[in-house]
Design a protein around this nucleic acid. Structure first.
Lengths: 247, 247
DNA sequence: GAAATAGTGTCTTTGAGACAGTATAAG
DNA sequence: CTTATACTGTCTCAAAGACACTATTTC
């Protein structure tokens, strides 16, 4: 085996390192619409994008955070007090131009929570943290950094996965009823869904466990369900995509 | 909103930063089997995992690389001389424990190339870069760092997407024939695929463009095709998943 | 009883699965 | 001719779509 000459170990690692951050797209359904949690950046003008809305997040703390996911859960808990939401990695954005302070990488996570489980933790000002509608024209909201683009992609991912997985179930507290779950799908997908087909599909996928009838204020009580697995969504054999049902 | 270069508040950004790396899982089909490109780490024992096989990659160079994807393409070109393969982000792995040199983040990309388009660029030793079978027991290969786990996930992703997208087409040079494409699916999925159904499905998805008949040495020449879009795979309305066809 | 919501039955349609068939080339 | 490969036709079947229907509660 050939030994190649290399610089000594310590000097080998002294090159410049990018800043490493974690950001979270937190979705919830409030007032019958899909919303996303945003925070307002400080208004001191030696910070980038002073006063602009941005995705919650921050720098990875190499002493407090064991992994990227831990960092994401920490940031999420700091803002919402939610302990164990559904969380998945959306992707990473890294480059020279996205932050005026230099080369940064953002590791973006994607969280689904129920609106009721959240208690917002604001900074000094109550308007520092707030829910915003997550609809198509969100791109025109001009978030800080490249967060508008990231949010668009997060919405696309949520809608796309709602077509063939049980993801929208993570937007509800347990137990929930099938009509409530159907409503989550309709809100996320932005169109109505046929009741009969929805029930057949949801029950056939075998990701729900009955918890007994519950009364949600409707004239007739409905069967309550909880998720068999709160870590991963179930995957359906085909997508939705109705023909005559339009929004 | 305009991105201005501003004098950073030095004191605010002087905390410790993780090491930032990019790794690539490069797949090709060689000798009728799915293979992955691995590199052997230097055998100096002050480096982690001396002599072990690992995914090709390296540190992000904040002066040469504009974005994470540029860094990935640079690493890929350095190892394979391939200019514009199919490339997508697989995910990021970051934490305190995965590298003895400290907190690191790996941004892993996923590349599909044709075996013929690759000319390996080895270091001093010809065995520094080599193709390895990418099959289930790859986990027992004990790659460096957490690369075994990452490779497993990459294989799962490729197989999973092959069920409902045109991804395997990126493993071929253009023009290719439908029987050749079907063979790529069979190799990736590890099972036979019905000819008639495959043709119907592939042509209905409308991602192929005829380029005239070509003779690939078979008794009868076949129609050649190229991809309508070399950036993104087409998505089929349903998955494969045959019942009686077994592997 | 009416009204509202929960849940079911059933016909249609779409597209995959299986497999037998035909077409075109080389020898 | 035979053989090998390219390509097609057709029957079956699973599951979604559409929509009308029944069931159970409150008022």
């Amino acid at each position: 085996l050939e030994i190649k000459t290399m610089p000594p170990r310590k000097s080998y690692l002294t090159f410049e390192r990018p800043l490493t951050t974690v950001d979270i797209v937190i979705f919830a359904v409030r007032d019958e619409s899909l919303q996303v949690l945003l925070v307002r950046r400080s208004s001191r003008d030696d910070d980038p994008f002073p006063g602009a809305w941005a995705l919650p997040g921050g720098f990875v703390d190499v002493h407090r955070d064991d992994t990227l996911e831990h960092a994401a859960r920490r940031k999420l808990f700091e803002k919402t007090s939610v302990k164990s939401p559904y969380l998945e990695q959306l992707g990473s954005w890294g480059g020279k131009q996205r932050d005026p302070r230099g080369w940064t990488t953002s590791h973006v996570y994607f969280a689904l929570v129920s609106a009721d489980s959240v208690s917002l933790v604001a900074g000094g000002n109550a308007e520092d943290v707030a829910w915003h509608p997550a609809v198509a024209p969100i791109g025109r909201k001009r978030l800080a950094f490249d967060h508008s683009e990231i949010l668009e992609i997060a919405i696309e991912r949520l809608q796309s996965k709602a077509e063939y997985t049980s993801l929208p179930a993570f937007l509800l507290d347990e137990p929930f009823t099938l009509p409530q779950l159907q409503r989550m799908y309709e809100i996320v997908l932005g169109r109505t869904v046929d009741k009969s087909g929805f029930r057949t599909r949801a029950l056939a996928a075998d990701f729900l466990i009955e918890t007994g009838e519950i009364d949600v204020g409707a004239p007739r009580p409905a069967m309550g369900y909880r998720l068999r697995d709160r870590k991963r969504p179930a995957i359906f054999p085909r997508t939705f995509s109705s023909r005559k049902h339009g929004s």
